[in-house]
Design a protein around this nucleic acid. Structure first.
Lengths: 214, 214
DNA sequence: AACTTTGTTAACCAGATGGTTAAACTAATT
DNA sequence: AATTAGTTTAACCATCTGGTTAACAAAGTT
């Protein structure tokens, strides 16, 4: 009989505890900064058990990273696939991105940080192995259709996406720097982000409006 | 007689070589990922010499980080203090930021990454010790004056600054992710960034225009 | 009850890492 | 030539880190 990996109640509980702990530590300290001992402690187990469940640090990191990336991109995809007109979709997209980033700031920081830190194929490989890449094709079609119908100005989709991401995500990634440079506290920052949910879509959409013939 | 630290030609050369090497390694690997041995190798010297010139890893990192941050912010300040009207200043600001980020992408990645990684006071402290914080006061005054003169719409300066930084810097920080998700190569990315030098100021300025009374 | 599989632990290990020491080398000064 | 201050190195050390081993506990299986 083929040796099947049997999943018992106990093992599931333990594995989940480990993953939670690992996620926390990896997001705080990064792949290099995280210590297996710290993860074990946070999970309330022995270090050897970590290697029993996830053979190595790299493998454990891979699980955590992919799950983080997926969580981040899947919500985005929901909106991107949605059945709405372009303007509404942009609004929803920005709102979703800002909300997600603010509620879970570690994810974009973590994903972007780690993708930068390893120029090697490490991250690329694990990214390819998942279906977590966002799919802009529908959105792009909508943009093109709207442009041809004369509803919006013709724009390069790549640029538009960069604009949206930059306006939504950057403040969260650069939060420590922002707070420091602007001398603002937690509450003030949150208020700014809340305001951005309205501001950013407005900015993006107004940039798509066709200016009156001059 | 007071023991004065004498700076000979030789020591300056060596110190400079070390700093160059350390900058390279720290920016690539981060504070935790960088190894003193690797820095020593890159500088073509012995590891002990590293500790002779810069007592510890932390001290060496501090030097590198502050210099990076300063390089990043000082150019910004030049523009911010400049004697131009609001629109021109915004244009210059965006151009400067994009050019600087593209030519030296490791700096924003490094600075923002490290500021996120250490929630402890470490970075804050070393930041306070330098005069590298950008000064938006003049720019803010210009904005207010222009708003009162009815030239531009009234906006929250914090939001405007977040917009500019996000639109200019984010693409560089998220470059690996962008390239991966959009499936574009080096040349294409550079072309996009070049285009942004025109696109971003246009976007920002048009958002400041007062819409025709409706 | 005997046996097998799975889950868990303490103790251990080899290698790496930041940092130290003491000695040797260099070049200017006396 | 001797002194001195600054520079450079090889060898060393304590500690940490990811990972392993062997033994043990628990829970089924026969």
């Amino acid at each position: 009989m083929v040796k099947k990996e049997q999943v018992t109640d106990q093992s599931m509980v333990t594995e989940e505890r480990i993953l939670e702990a690992a996620t926390k530590v990896f997001r705080e300290k990064g792949r290099e900064g995280a210590r297996m001992q710290e993860i074990a402690d946070a999970a309330g187990i022995n270090k050897a058990l970590l290697h029993y469940y996830f053979r190595s640090k790299d493998l454990l990191f891979e699980r955590v990273f992919i799950e983080s990336a997926r969580l981040f991109f899947s919500r985005l995809n929901e909106v991107l696939q949605g059945n709405m007109d372009v303007f509404q979709k942009i609004t929803r997209l920005c709102e979703a991105y800002i909300t997600l980033s603010v509620e879970n700031p570690f994810i974009p920081v973590f994903v972007i940080g780690e993708m930068n830190r390893s120029q090697d194929i490490f991250i690329r490989n694990m990214f390819t192995a998942t279906q977590s890449r966002p799919d802009f094709s529908i959105f792009r079609q909508q943009l093109q259709a709207a442009a041809e119908a004369g509803i919006i100005r013709r724009v390069a989709p790549h640029q538009l996406i960069m604009n949206i991401l930059g306006l939504c995500i950057f403040p969260v990634i650069a939060k420590p720097m922002m707070q420091f440079n602007m001398g603002i506290g937690e509450g003030e920052f949150m208020a700014l982000m809340e305001e951005r949910k309205r501001l950013v879509p407005e900015l993006i959409i107004s940039s798509l409006k066709i200016e009156k013939s001059e």
